[in-house]
């Protein structure tokens, strides 16, 4: 579905992603794990077209998308929940969800989808008229994911959904990720520092170091890999 070939990108004079190649098939959950500054978020931002791809190719369903604008990429079904959640602070929960469906015009199904995300996260239904900025970190993460779902993505890019959250909430979020993947066949590209949690639900994984893929394999094999255990699982 999504294929990156030798992708390079970065900010100013700094090249954060130095030639990454990876591939995701439809319906898969894959995870990209790595340390701070390894280039994980930049990879996602490059796929979304927020950061320009300087070299290499990104193709979505065999169509090259690396030169498209972000809104055109979103239109093709690639949605991102960025690191730090990025809730619109002065829009209500409901308005935030509406923004997620910005490119859709099927009012009826939008309403259904709102009910669907409220069933996934009942707390959001309670807070629907509250400003997004007043929610707690966990609630904001739930809202950010719900907002992305409102676009009915083919491919969902999640950037550190566990960051700064309590263990119980992390568990809940990961369960929902799995559920979204299973129920809607949504392909998921999960970027995490919480390697253990990520590898538990992913089918395959990639390890990124200094802007390059250093290791790849099934989630099981990575969990058992001694180098990964040492560097990212703290075992």
């Amino acid at each position: 579905m999504l294929k990156l070939e030798n992708v390079q990108s970065g900010y100013g004079n700094i090249l954060a992603v130095r030639g990454i190649s990876l591939e995701i098939s439809e319906g898969e959950i894959i995870t990209l794990i790595g340390a701070n500054g390894a280039g994980k978020s930049t990879t996602l931002m490059t796929i979304s077209g927020v950061v320009r791809c300087r070299a290499g190719k990104i193709s979505l369903n065999d169509e090259e998308i690396q030169d498209l604008d972000t809104d055109a990429i979103v239109k093709r079904g690639v949605c991102q929940v960025p690191e730090g959640r990025h809730i619109f602070p002065q829009l209500t929960v409901r308005e935030n969800l509406d923004m997620g469906a910005f490119l859709r015009k099927d009012t009826k199904q939008i309403k259904q989808d709102i009910d669907y995300v409220f069933s996934l996260f009942p707390i959001l239904a309670e807070r629907r008229n509250q400003d997004g900025g007043t929610l707690s970190g966990g609630e904001q993460q739930m809202l950010a994911m719900s907002r992305a779902l409102m676009a009915r993505p083919q491919l969902l890019l999640l950037d550190e959904p566990s960051m700064g959250l309590a263990p119980l909430i992390i568990k809940q979020i990961f369960e929902i990720i799995k559920k979204i993947n299973e129920e809607n066949n949504t392909t998921i590209f999960l970027v995490e520092q919480n390697a253990n949690q990520a590898l538990q639900i992913a089918h395959r994984g990639y390890v990124i170091e200094n802007g390059k893929i250093s290791l790849t394999g099934s989630a099981q094999s990575l969990l058992q890999n001694t180098a990964v255990q040492k560097a990212y699982l703290g075992i």
Partner: peptide
């Protein structure tokens, strides 16, 4: 309003 509050996110919702 969305763009004023968070430009990157506005881009990411299309």
């Amino acid at each position: 309003r969305a763009t004023a509050q968070d430009r990157t996110m506005a881009m990411l919702v299309g």
